[in-house]
Computed example of a mutant assay.
Amino acid sequence: MSIASEHIDRLLPQTQCRQCGYQGCSPYAQALSRGEAAINLCTPGGATVIRDLAQLLNVPVLPPADPLKAEQPKAIAVIDEAECIGCTACIKACPVDAILGATKQMHTVISNECSGCELCIEPCPVDCISMQPVQEHWLPRARQLAEKPQDERFAAATQANARFQHRTARLQRLQCEKEQQLHARQQKTAIAATPTTKSASSINPAALIAKAMAKAQTQQLQRRVPDNQDSFQQQQIAKAQEQASYRRAMRDLQYGSEQQKADALVWLRLYKQQRESQQ
């Protein structure tokens, strides 16, 4: 990373939200240092970051690229724990490890560590994650103590970046361990396949064929149970998705725009017809 991009990166909020169109704050800073990106793409940073970037890069101040989004209050993710199916999709998407949970177990958001990036919403298969507005001007809320209010911005960015770097290191460590295990298995397989000192005449082809057939039959029997489990899991996910769509339609019918209300009414009618036909 060049010196220029490092200076730029320090001005960004480090939420890693990708709303600028890049895969994080550092790639956006690098694009700015090369003159390949506009200074008004950071939605979480808003006018403050735009102004500082303009001063640093000696370019004119621009209005936010998404003014409506920039004017909205900061918000953190909240999981409807009663509807969560424990798929871990949101955990994998969170760039700052602010979601706790395990496979088939309820997930919850660490509210003080959430950076409000919204990356967990789209991958959720049952639409059980929403954004809750908060009063803070900068996220995450677990920022380091700042002596002055104007320093809260950089304290929050430092906290978010520390969480992001910790997650990156953890994923790299897990990937390294996975590669080591794979290499060990490959070596074991290679050793097992190494020809022994036995002569070709001592090998019994019929016995080898019988052993291979028995192993194939065992594997086929073992696969039946996971197949049934996968089918059951798919049914559960489909049921949860249908419930999520019903809740969303009811919400739009009550609080949505005219178009959303019309679409929700059409969906609910079709839903009622399908339910009646199944009875």
Score class of each variant (00 low, 15 high):
Gln105Tyr: 13
Ala54Met: 02
Thr197Glu: 14
Cys25Glu: 09
Ala184Asp: 10
Ser26His: 13
Ala216Asp: 12
Asn228Gln: 14
Glu242Trp: 06
Gln30Trp: 08
Ser130Pro: 00
Ala75Tyr: 03
Asn161Glu: 08
Ser2Asp: 10
Ser111Pro: 02
Gln159Asn: 05
Gly116Gln: 00
Gln165Met: 07
Val59Pro: 04
Trp267Thr: 06
Leu171Met: 12
Glu36Val: 01
Pro27Thr: 00
Arg170Tyr: 12
Leu119Tyr: 01
Leu53Val: 08
Pro63Glu: 14
Gln273Arg: 10
Pro125Gly: 07
Ala155Trp: 09
Asn58Gln: 15
Pro64Trp: 09
Thr15Cys: 09
Asn228Ala: 14
Gln254Lys: 15
Gln279Leu: 14
Arg247Asn: 14
Ser2Val: 06
Gln23His: 09
Ala98Trp: 02
Pro149Tyr: 00
Ala193Pro: 07
Ile121Ser: 01
Ser257His: 04
Ala54Gly: 05
Gln229Ser: 08
Gly21Thr: 03
Tyr28Pro: 03
Cys87Ser: 10
Ala238Val: 05
Met1Gln: 03
Ala206Glu: 15
Ala38Gln: 15
Pro67His: 03
Leu57Pro: 07
Cys25Val: 02
Ala184Glu: 12
Asp9Ser: 12
Cys128His: 01
Ala156Asp: 03
Lys74Gly: 01
Gln234Gly: 02
Ile209Arg: 04
Thr218Ala: 12
Cys124Tyr: 08
Ile3Trp: 03
Glu118Met: 11
Ala4Val: 09
Tyr22Asn: 00
Val49Lys: 00
Glu276Tyr: 13
Ser201Asp: 13
Gln259Lys: 12
Leu145Ser: 09
Asp263Asn: 11
Glu6Asp: 14
Glu276Gln: 14
Glu136Met: 00
Ser111Leu: 13
Ile76Ala: 02
Asp230Gln: 15
Gln14Pro: 05
Gly21Cys: 01
Pro73Glu: 06
Gln243Leu: 13
Gln254Glu: 15
Thr218Ile: 11
Arg224Ile: 11
Ala82Asn: 10
Glu122Ala: 12
Gln144Pro: 02
Ser245Asp: 15
Ser2Gln: 05
Arg167Val: 00
Ala249Glu: 12
Leu12Trp: 04
Gln220Val: 06
Gln278Thr: 09
Ala212Asn: 07
Gly86Arg: 07
Gln186Gly: 01
Gln219Asp: 11
Val126Ser: 02
Tyr28Glu: 01
